[in-house]
Simulated scan of single mutants.
Amino acid sequence: MKAEVAQQRSLLELTELDAELARITHRAGHLPEQQDRERIQAEHTAAADRLAALELALEDLDAQAGRLESEIDSVRQREDRDRALLDSGQTNPKQVADLQHELETLERRQSALEDSLLELMEQREQLQAKATAEATVVEGLVADLARVQETIDAALGEIEVSRGQRSASREQLAATIDEELLALYTRQRASGGVGAGPLRGGQCGACRIEIDRGQLAKISAAEPEEVVRCPECSAILLRVKDFG
């Protein structure tokens, strides 16, 4: 295949635009702020899990406290009934003794229940303090996520503007290149990643490999319009002097 030197020069410009677009794409996927976001997201997930566990523990303590309060209320009601019977004067001595014994038992039971409830409420107070602190951590991480996402969005916006400008330039340039030469370049890009590269000294600008002297001699002997390929990577070798 032959191509005018001007066409080869245009193809080299296209190669550099494609390389720049590839760098833009890489940058878009590897912003430092994206790593920050991943780290903060992991911290937020861990903190949210801890908070959820604390909230479940608080719910369990509240359920236990509810049962204790219900039992204390039942004991008090029984005590009130027993005292009402004693105060009524309608009980015989044996009933009086039984009621007094039951009241003593109920008082001990009430005291034990109230002690258990007090201990439970102290545990709850400690857990609530931890939950409140953890909730503050979660809120702070949510704010951090919002800030880093705003930074990422701004950076990606700038990248998209740059990508759009380079893509437009590429489209305009590609329209000026011979279809057969452009098709060869496109196929090589699809198979090898780099479609073309300048020949610098004895090195291929696409794969960065030094070409042996025998192959280099053949390439140097080819006419300027002859489209030559790198013997190592098959990329189009562009023998364009004084470029850039």
Rank of each mutant, 00 (worst) to 15 (best):
Q100N: 09
D49T: 12
S88Y: 00
L21R: 01
E79I: 04
A42L: 08
Q64D: 13
T45M: 09
A52P: 04
S88Q: 02
E59R: 10
L11M: 01
A65T: 00
T91L: 15
K94R: 14
L51Y: 05
A53F: 07
E79A: 11
P93I: 15
A22C: 07
Q100R: 11
T25Y: 12
I72R: 05
I40M: 07
D82G: 11
T91M: 13
A65C: 02
E20R: 13
L99R: 06
L85S: 12
T45S: 12
A63P: 00
K94S: 14
D82L: 13
R78W: 04
E33L: 12
E55L: 07
G29M: 10
G66C: 03
P93S: 13
D73H: 07
E102Q: 13
A28F: 03
L31A: 01
E33N: 02
D62M: 04
R78F: 02
R83Q: 11
E59G: 10
L58K: 04
A52D: 11
Q41A: 15
A47T: 03
R83V: 05
A19P: 03
E38C: 05
D49R: 10
R23I: 02
G89P: 05
S74P: 09
V75Q: 00
L21D: 00
A97K: 11
L17R: 00
Q100C: 02
Q77V: 10
R78A: 11
R39L: 15
R50L: 06
E43A: 12
K94D: 15
R50G: 04
T25G: 14
L99S: 02
L56E: 14
E55Q: 14
N92E: 12
E69N: 08
L14T: 02
L61K: 13
D98L: 09
E71P: 09
I24E: 07
V96F: 05
L17C: 00
Q95M: 12
L58C: 02
L12M: 08
L11W: 02
R83T: 05
G89I: 05
A97H: 11
A48S: 14
R27E: 15
Q34L: 13
D18I: 06
E33I: 07
L31E: 07
L21W: 01
V96L: 08
E55N: 12
E59Y: 08
L58T: 05
R23S: 09
Q34T: 10
E79T: 09
L17I: 08
L61P: 05
P93M: 13
R37L: 15
E59F: 09
Q95I: 03
E13W: 06
T91Q: 09
Q100Y: 01
A65N: 00
A42R: 10
L31Q: 06
E20L: 10
D87A: 14
L99G: 02
E59T: 14
L11D: 00
Q41N: 15
H101P: 00
G29A: 12
V96C: 03
R23A: 11
R83C: 01
L103H: 07
A97R: 10
L86E: 09
H26I: 06
A42E: 13
Q41W: 10
Q41F: 11
D80Q: 12
T45I: 03
S88T: 03
D98Y: 04
A63E: 10
S10D: 12
Q34K: 06
E55T: 08
S10L: 15
R83K: 15
Q8G: 02
Q77H: 08
I24Q: 11
S74M: 12
A53I: 06
E13V: 08
G29Y: 06
E38K: 08
I72S: 04
E16N: 10
L56F: 10
E38W: 00
R9M: 09
Q90W: 08
